[in-house]
């Protein structure tokens, strides 16, 4: 479980998060949803210790994020922030292989190599394995970064808008893969913009707005017409498709 207690955060004096207390349940796929500027990414980055914690306390599977050594945390959770332009010229296979670095610290064994091969395969990157990161498309680079985080093979996987740049087929393949990981006992937390991915795949939803958690709970109880219309300040209807909610926001 990821436990978040009394977390507040400011960036350049502007308050981003106000006294957030929530949790991401163990063994579930949790989606963080909310309008732009709600603080979802900031909260995820704080959990993943990509930003220093200013106030409050966060524990990941019992490890206090502020005090646990960073390399110890890297074996408990993998985090992928939003990718900015990276000029690094690594082959995709080399990038994914770095996902195993927290485990072998430079001396990869057969287990490490197997996990890298598996991750490359899972994200349809095997044919691109020898290509350089600066010579593939944005979506392919994104998939390689996700494959690296998956190869890290941690109990917790945190992804900040992993669906960015991915086409429908690869987005669905990613969600299916995450679902399988969760069903196999892992836990996933992700920031999602396209609400229907949360509706179709998430177990648990945390809805945020203006730096506060406005609703949380099982997907079915959070994804309601009233709540989403309020959350995004726009009229939203909800239908049903194969027993899951389907959010209709184009009408």
């Amino acid at each position: 479980m990821i436990q978040i207690d009394g977390v507040s955060h400011r960036i350049g004096g502007a308050p981003i998060l106000h006294d957030i207390s929530t949790r991401l349940p163990q063994g579930k796929l949790t989606a963080l949803i909310g309008p732009n500027g709600a603080g979802k990414s900031t909260l995820l980055r704080l959990v993943g210790r990509l930003e220093p914690l200013q106030a409050g306390r966060i524990t990941v599977a019992g490890h206090d994020v502020a005090t646990t050594p960073t390399d110890r945390l890297a074996r408990v959770m993998a985090i992928l922030g939003q990718q900015t332009a990276i000029a690094s010229r690594l082959r995709l296979s080399e990038l994914v292989a770095f996902g195993r670095w927290p485990h072998h610290k430079g001396r990869p064994g057969s287990v490490d190599r197997a996990k890298v091969t598996e991750a490359l395969d899972a994200f349809a990157l095997t044919p691109l394995a020898g290509r350089f990161l600066d010579e593939v498309s944005g979506g392919q680079a994104q998939r390689a970064h996700i494959a690296m985080a998956v190869a890290q093979d941690t109990d917790w996987l945190l992804l900040d808008e992993p669906l960015n740049n991915l086409d429908m087929a690869h987005a669905r393949a990613l969600m299916r893969r995450l679902r399988a990981m969760v069903d196999g006992g892992r836990s996933v937390g992700m920031v999602v913009h396209e609400i229907n991915y949360a509706a179709a795949w998430a177990d648990h939803v945390i809805a945020m707005k203006n730096g506060r958690v406005v609703a949380q709970g099982p997907a079915g109880s959070v994804l309601t017409e009233d709540l989403l219309s309020d959350l995004y300040d726009t009229p939203i209807q909800i239908g049903e498709h194969r027993g899951r909610p389907l959010v209709l926001h184009h009408c």
Binding site: R72, A74, I79, L80, F98
Partner: peptide
Amino acid sequence: GVATGLGL
């Protein structure tokens, strides 16, 4: 971000 995520 990536470096910290990998525990560096």
